[in-house]
Deep mutational scan, measured.
Amino acid sequence: MSGNGNAAATAEENSPKMRVIRVGTRKSQLARIQTDSVVATLKASYPGLQFEIIAMSTTGDKILDTALSKIGEKSLFTKELEHALEKNEVDLVVHSLKDLPTVLPPGFTIGAICKRENPHDAVVFHPKFVGKTLETLPEKSVVGTSSLRRAAQLQRKFPHLEFRSIRGNLNTRLRKLDEQQEFSAIILATAGLQRMGWHNRVGQILHPEECMYAVGQGALGVEVRAKDQDILDLVGVLHDPETLLRCIAERAFLRHLEGGCSVPVAVHTAMKDGQLYLTGGVWSLDGSDSIQETMQATIHVPAQHEDGPEDDPQLVGITARNIPRGPQLAAQNLGISLANLLLSKGAKNILDVARQLNDAH
């Protein structure tokens, strides 16, 4: 009898209710805020589980004197976190989706994509230029951005401005803007500013005609071990179906173009009346040469937790077992079709030249 009692006690200790789920994140304040929001949602869904947040620095956090596009290494903000995932030191990792490459290392998958916040870019102005827009900034004003995508589009749109690289986390960039006289304004992701509670610093939100956004911008991705079915089931509740389908289309477009950090590629997606609209573009580094096109596809946005595919093969690095396969494939095909259209119009040449120029500098 006593033996059975011990077995029952052991089973209770090993039951999922007692389990601590370890969540990996970057150390920056924004990353911690984003991770806290994901953990809060998981806690609400699984009140019996405990969650421990483990923060670590990544290569991208450490190399702050070089433009991201020049470092010449993929997975700048993800490699150390993936290493911890691989060694079973954490069970899942919360990322900004735009930091996750469209091809993940073997053994990993994006197990959830959370509801997207505003994906557009924002302009934050130096205190002396508050009330201005990019259009009304004085001639030769210097605007800071760490992104080739932003610089290429904005140089084309605002030729009277000069664009220079600015690195560091959000706090560091804002301090550089406010305390030094080098920059009249800087460009940042609206979602990051909003998550930090800095709505009052948003001086201008850039519309798609001015600057399309990065693939996955404004959404959070939760990376897990691809074979860890328990954790895949656990994080599945975080999937937002519309965000998922938009981001599958965007990531398929980028992957098929073979774009990345070192080339200016941008997108804009919208879901309306059962249609998914995808606009994508590529630019030369100075913005003088560009190709942009829009395509659409009829896609039914499923309700969360309709029964999805059981075999769960990944699409552009994403596993969404609780979302039907048909809409996911339709979104992926839309991204591939748009990429093929741009490639047929000469996108590869623009991107190759951009890559060579970026590598040469």
Results as ranks from 00 to 15, higher is better:
Pro313Lys: 08
Phe253Thr: 04
Glu179Cys: 10
Gly144Trp: 04
Gly216Ser: 12
Thr294Asp: 01
Thr102Cys: 04
Pro324Ala: 07
Val215Asn: 01
Arg225Asn: 04
Val237Ser: 11
Leu64Val: 05
Glu82Asp: 10
Glu242Val: 14
Val123Ile: 13
Arg26Thr: 01
Glu210Gly: 04
Ala303Thr: 12
Leu42Phe: 09
Arg26Asp: 01
Ile291Glu: 13
Ala266Val: 15
Ser75Phe: 01
Thr145Ile: 04
Phe163Ile: 13
Lys227Val: 01
Leu234Asp: 04
His268Phe: 13
Leu137Val: 11
Pro47Phe: 08
Gly287Ser: 07
Met196Cys: 14
Leu49Gln: 13
Leu193Tyr: 01
Asp121Lys: 01
Arg201Ser: 01
Leu245Trp: 10
Gly317Arg: 03
Leu177Glu: 01
Asp307Gly: 15
Ala297Ile: 01
Trp198Met: 15
Thr109Pro: 01
Pro106Leu: 12
Leu104Lys: 01
Leu244Ser: 14
Thr58Ser: 10
Lys345Val: 05
Leu193Pro: 08
Leu278Asp: 01
Ile299Thr: 14
Phe253Met: 14
Val90Tyr: 05
Asp240Ala: 08
Leu154Gly: 10
Trp283Val: 01
Leu148Pro: 15
Gly287His: 05
Ala67Thr: 14
Asp312His: 13
Val94Ala: 01
Glu209Gln: 15
Leu257Val: 14
Arg116Glu: 05
Leu338Gln: 04
Gly346Leu: 09
Asp178Pro: 01
Glu135Ala: 13
Gln50Gly: 06
Lys115Trp: 05
Arg22Lys: 13
Leu220Gln: 01
Thr59Leu: 06
Gln304Pro: 06
Asn349Trp: 15
Gln314Ser: 05
Ala189Ile: 01
Gly280Met: 01
Leu254Cys: 01
Val301His: 03
Ala67Asp: 15
His83Lys: 12
Gly274Thr: 01
His160Gln: 13
Thr279Tyr: 12
Gly287Asn: 03
Gly221Leu: 05
Ser96His: 04
Gly281Pro: 01
Gly274His: 05
Ile63Asn: 14
Glu139Asp: 13
Pro47Thr: 12
Ala226Phe: 10
Thr172Ser: 09
Asp240Met: 04
Leu234Phe: 07
Ala189Phe: 01
Val282Glu: 01
Asp91Asn: 12
Leu276Trp: 01
Leu104His: 10
Val301Leu: 01
Lys176Thr: 10
Ala339Pro: 01
Gly281Trp: 10
Ser344Trp: 01
Leu137Phe: 07
Arg355Tyr: 08
Val222Lys: 01
Glu82Arg: 08
Asp61Gly: 03
Leu351Asn: 01
Val265Gly: 04
Thr66Gln: 06
Pro119Cys: 10
Lys98Glu: 04
Asp352Phe: 14
Arg32Ala: 08
Thr78Gly: 11
His120Ala: 05
Gly221Arg: 01
Pro309Val: 15
Leu161Asn: 04
Gly317His: 01
Ala55Tyr: 11
Leu170Lys: 03
Pro208Ser: 10
Gln153Gly: 08
Glu139Arg: 08
Ala226Gly: 11
Thr58Cys: 12
Ile21Lys: 01
Pro119Trp: 10
Gly111Gln: 01
Thr172Phe: 09
Pro106Gly: 09
Lys115Glu: 10
Gln292Ile: 15
Leu100Asn: 01
Asp61Gln: 01
Val39Pro: 01
Lys176Ile: 11
Met56Gln: 13
Cys211Ala: 11
Asp352Gly: 01
Gly260Cys: 15
Thr190Pro: 04
Glu135Asp: 12
Gln181Ile: 07
Val353Pro: 08
Pro324His: 14
Leu100Thr: 06
Pro313Thr: 07
Gln229Asn: 14
Ala84Met: 14
Ser57Lys: 01
Lys74Cys: 05
Ser262Glu: 15
Leu64Phe: 09
Val265Arg: 01
Gly274Cys: 04
Pro264Thr: 15
Glu210Ala: 07
Leu42Pro: 01
Gly203Ile: 01
Leu137Asn: 04
Ala44Trp: 10
Ser262Arg: 15
Gly168Asp: 01
Gly287Thr: 01
Ser344Asn: 14
Gly221Lys: 01
Ile323Val: 11
His120Val: 09
Gly236Thr: 09
Arg116Ile: 01
Arg246Lys: 06
Ser75Gly: 12
Lys272Ser: 14
Arg149Met: 01
Ala67Val: 11
Ala347His: 05
Val90Trp: 04
Glu209Val: 03
Leu188Lys: 01
Asp36Pro: 01
Glu250Gln: 09
Ile318Gly: 07
Leu285Tyr: 15
Arg32His: 07
Ile63Asp: 01
Ser165Pro: 14
Gly168Leu: 04
Gln29Gly: 14
Ala191Leu: 01
Asp121Phe: 01
Pro127Asp: 06
Ser288Cys: 11
Leu206Tyr: 01
Ala44Ser: 12
Lys27Gln: 08
Tyr277Ser: 08
Gly107Ala: 09
Lys98Val: 01
Leu244Met: 09
Ala191Asp: 04
Gly203Ala: 13
Ala40His: 08
Val215Cys: 15
Pro313Gln: 04
His239Leu: 05
Ser45Val: 09
Lys115His: 08
Ser75Tyr: 01
Arg26Val: 01
Val215Met: 10
Arg195Ser: 01
Leu315Met: 09
Phe163Cys: 11
Lys115Ser: 14
Leu342Gly: 06
Pro309Trp: 05
Ile33Ser: 11
Gly107Trp: 15
Met271Asn: 08
Asn118Gln: 09
Gln328Leu: 08
Ile231Val: 13
Asn171Met: 11
Met295Lys: 12
Ala122Pro: 05
Val94Gly: 04
Ile248Gly: 01
Pro313Asp: 03
Thr269Glu: 01
Asp91Gln: 06
Ser57Gly: 09
Glu310Gly: 12
His126Asp: 09
His95Leu: 09
Ala330Thr: 10
Thr109Cys: 12
Met271Ser: 12
Asp178Ile: 01
His126Thr: 08
Asp178Glu: 12
Val224Phe: 14
Pro101Gly: 05
Glu73Trp: 04
Thr78Asn: 10
Gly216Leu: 01
Gln314His: 13
Val224Thr: 15
Leu92Ala: 10
Gln217Val: 01
Arg246Asn: 08
Val301Gly: 12
Gln180Val: 09
Leu68Lys: 13
Met295Glu: 07
His120Tyr: 13
Gly218Glu: 04
Pro101Val: 08
Asp273His: 06
Gly281Leu: 08
Thr294Cys: 01
Pro309Leu: 13
Val263Lys: 15
Pro119Lys: 04
Met295Cys: 04
Arg26Trp: 01
Gln194Ala: 13
Val202Cys: 12
Ile186Asp: 04
Ala354Glu: 13
Thr294Pro: 15
Thr243Ala: 01
Gly259Trp: 01
Ser96Phe: 01
Asp352His: 15
Val267Trp: 01
Asp352Ser: 09
Ile71Thr: 09
Asp307Cys: 10
Glu223Leu: 10
Ile187Leu: 09
Thr279Gly: 09
Pro119Thr: 12
Thr35Asn: 04
Ala84Lys: 08
Glu139Asn: 13
Glu73Gly: 06
Ala214Lys: 01
Leu177Phe: 05
Gln217Ile: 03
Pro106Asp: 11
Phe77Thr: 01
His256Thr: 14
Val103Ala: 07
Val353Phe: 01
Gln194Met: 15
Ile231Asn: 07
Asn169Asp: 06
Leu206Ile: 03
Ser337Phe: 01
Asp36Cys: 07
Asn349Ser: 07
Asp230Cys: 01
Ala320Trp: 14
Arg251Trp: 10
Leu234Glu: 01
Gly218Asn: 01
Glu209Leu: 05
Gly111Arg: 03
Gly60Arg: 05
Glu139Tyr: 12
Ile186Lys: 03
Val235Lys: 01
Tyr46Asn: 14
Glu293Leu: 06
Asp359His: 13
Arg26Cys: 01
Val90Cys: 11
Ser284Trp: 05
Val143Pro: 03
Cys114Tyr: 06
Trp198His: 11
Asn322Tyr: 08
Asp286Lys: 05
Glu179Gln: 12
Asp312Leu: 06
Val301Asp: 12
Val23His: 04
Thr136Trp: 14
Leu42Tyr: 04
Ser337Ile: 10
Met212Cys: 01
Leu97Pro: 01
Gly131His: 13
Ile53Asp: 09
Gln194Asn: 06
Asp230Lys: 09
Lys98Ile: 04
Gly107Asn: 07
Leu278Phe: 09
Arg201Glu: 01
Gly197Leu: 04
Glu310Arg: 13
Gly192Asn: 01
Arg150Trp: 04
His268Gln: 14
Phe51His: 09
Ser28Cys: 04
Ser69Cys: 13
Pro106Lys: 14
Asp230Val: 11
Leu170Met: 13
Asn322His: 09
Arg173Phe: 01
Cys114Asn: 10
Cys247Ile: 01
Thr298Gly: 03
Gly236Trp: 01
His95Asn: 13
Arg156Ile: 14
Ala84Phe: 11
Ile248Trp: 05
Met196Tyr: 12
Gly274Ser: 01
Lys132Ile: 11
Glu117His: 11
Leu30Phe: 01
Gly221Glu: 01
Asn118Trp: 10
Glu139Cys: 14
Lys157Ala: 13
His95Tyr: 03
Val267Tyr: 01
Ala151Asp: 12
Glu310Gln: 15
Ala84His: 08
Phe129Gln: 13
Pro127Cys: 03
Gln50Ser: 01
Lys345Met: 14
Ala151Pro: 04
Asp36Ala: 09
Leu177His: 01
Thr59Pro: 12
Lys345Tyr: 14
Glu179His: 09
Lys74Thr: 07
Ala122Phe: 03
Thr298Glu: 10
His120Pro: 04
Val103Pro: 11
